[in-house]
Design a protein around this nucleic acid. Structure first.
Lengths: 260, 260
DNA sequence: CAGTGGTCTAGACCACTGA
DNA sequence: CAGTGGTCTAGACCACTGA
């Protein structure tokens, strides 16, 4: 078995998705609600309260810790939010199943990601125009068939090595000025985040081959494995953008951490 | 641009990582804290309070909604937990930056995942033995060099199609009975979750080629792109297991959804 | 100093579950 | 019915920031 180092970098290039840090451990660690939370968390980790076991009730914890019920409630509600316990009105609090193995992922702007590594980022624009919307695209981008849709094709480089080919469609209704952006200075992701700061997204991560054009732009072979992310973004039920991100498998990967 | 359908399945096989559902929308939607939260969330979505803008203070919201401060605090604390706002003592509450683009991922047991799709799962065991720990492995699995470490190599099939090659090392101290498990009936993931219900994990997701042995077991070509996940699992600072999961890129992908 | 968020108390009313 | 969690109130003390 080849054992890639899951925490280090590889070839100086890597780490695609940044993980939001968990709630700070130190600050206010001595607060009663935090102590109760830690007590329950430790018990779960130690195997007391196996999955589906009934945990102490709020009133029991109130008596045990000598605090008000609101304080206990907060500890339990946060554990519930982290998926560590399940609470049912009228029944009680139960230890959860697979809950702990979860992680919060934040997709970062590639420009920020590269510069955060202390490397140079630059982008080359290969396409930036309006096109008539196709049948296949229309339902996913929320534009009528034949109506104009913005289309950009941009390659992002880290220290002059092509790292990502970004093939993007944008709904003109959401970002009418999109094509006037200088994409060598501002990434589409950054621009769209400004236009619509809050959004929802669906994504798919897969391994496959680049198209012939993508392989040429990335300087890789037709059969070289690529990490491909397709993401569709929606703001208040209005589709904003659909993007296909192709990364050479040898230059990019996603890393993260799960913690309870 | 090929436009994969990010929400449907492909070849009847797909969807690797299951996404935990967001907080229920309906239940207790009329609770005051939920109304305040929705009010702030809508404002953020609508572009009022751009990133870094100062948002209403707790006392302002108390006055505006005619509720007690605890109720306002709860709404704001939950928004903070979701990464939508940043709060600084002495200063105030600020609209956050990229926060919304985040998601909670839960890694499911592959057996559950396959049977949840209504398909048949079966596993073939190609290796299950103790081996002396190598230099490279020792620091990652927490076993002394030369001391025994458990090693299993299992292929998981969905409807008789090889879907995943699971190459796993296990720390005997954490699961002394590991090798006595019938892995055609219980997956290693399932077994280890029982032994150590709460854990942390580091993972890396990448695209690459299978080894010659993996390619043979999966019935794919040496140059076929594969989605490879390497995951290291730790329970209370004690390493439990290190696993390399190789999936044919044409048969497996990870899907998910971000929502604020 | 006034204003902010961080946390807590000691009550309260309610909906729900199972006996 | 007693016990559970879901939510709220009207206060309180504190640490912190910037003027």
């Amino acid at each position: 078995m080849a054992i890639p180092d899951a925490t280090g970098t590889r070839n100086g290039i890597g780490i695609g998705i940044a993980i939001a840090p968990g709630p700070g451990a130190d600050p206010s660690a001595r607060a009663p609600y935090a102590r109760i939370k830690a007590f329950l968390k430790d018990g779960l980790a130690a195997g007391r309260w196996p999955p589906d076991a009934l945990m102490p009730s709020e009133s029991e914890l109130v008596a045990q810790f000598g605090v008000s019920r609101m304080t206990v409630t907060r500890a339990l509600r946060e554990l519930q939010g982290e998926g560590l316990v399940t609470r049912v009105q009228g029944l009680g609090t139960y230890a959860a199943h697979l809950a702990p193995v979860s992680s919060t992922i934040t997709i970062r702007d590639l420009h920020e990601e590269i510069t955060a590594r202390g490397h140079r980022h630059h982008a080359t624009v290969h396409l930036a125009r309006a096109e008539p919307c196709t049948d296949a695209l229309a339902p996913r981008i929320g534009v009528a068939v034949g109506a104009p849709v913005f289309h950009t094709l941009i390659v992002h480089h880290e220290n002059d090595v092509p790292l990502q080919c970004e093939d993007r469609y944008v709904n003109p209704a959401c970002a009418p000025e999109y094509l006037h952006t200088d994409f060598t200075r501002i990434t589409p992701t950054h621009y769209l985040l400004q236009v619509a700061p809050l959004w929802e997204a669906q994504y798919a991560i897969e391994s496959g081959n680049a198209t012939a054009q993508e392989a040429r732009l990335l300087g890789i072979g037709a059969r070289d494995p690529c990490l491909i992310i397709v993401r569709r973004t929606v703001n208040r039920d209005v589709p904003i953008t659909l993007v296909r991100l192709v990364h050479p498998g040898s230059r990019y990967r996603l890393e993260g951490q799960f913690s309870p």
